[in-house]
Amino acid sequence: MNLFSTIYCMARRDLTLALRHKTEILTALFFFVIVVNLLPLGVGPDPKLLSKIAPGVVWIGALLATLLGLPRLFAHDYQDGTLEQLSLSPRSFTLIVLGKIMAHWIVAGLPVVLITPLLGIQFNLSGPIIGVLMLTLVLGTPVLSLIGAIGAALTLGVRGGGVLLSLLILPLYIPVLIFGAGAAEAYRAGLDMTGYLWLLAALDLLALFFAPWVSAIALKVALE
């Protein structure tokens, strides 16, 4: 089994499990939609104001929706003993963890990207800005899953781990939020946004390299 088939095999398993628990996918999606829709109720119906704050609101919604499923990323496997079995595999545990993170992104991040055009229309965003917002989400939401996995691994088996996870991870999400929302804002202002996109891509690579590895180490500690 090569590198890709290890990742594919784990991602496929977690996606199969997610499809059999459709509520998990729908909960994250509805949570995202509700968070994004609550803000107009609070700040009023001014279309100019709403379209100005929309990218930031969508990004905060995406961030919180990703956070929602993170405590369960490894918890079920830990409880039923499958995580222990996975750690005994002669295959790279880091790649196994990467497969799980990819599945988490497909379940929690991808639906957010796909529903964003609808919310963009609701916020009176123009087509190109919606496109830019989707692009930043495609680049940024994997970082949320990757960094979140580290927190999920570090808090595995800890009582009250969900709260601790939020406290641990939310500060680390700040750069993604700034660059993600900043790119859409820069585009609206007619400025060059490529710098933001490159920074998001760099965060992607950095997180892709380190997060599965660090998560795997933290999980092995949790299993001891």
Partner: peptide
């Protein structure tokens, strides 16, 4: 190594569980 815990995913079938574990076992 077969431990105390079931090591099986409850939502998957025996066939799916064993297929996955055999792949993970290499």
């Amino acid at each position: 190594y077969l431990g105390h815990a079931s090591g099986l995913k409850e939502e998957l079938t025996p066939l799916e569980n064993l297929t996955l574990m055999s792949q993970i076992d290499g």
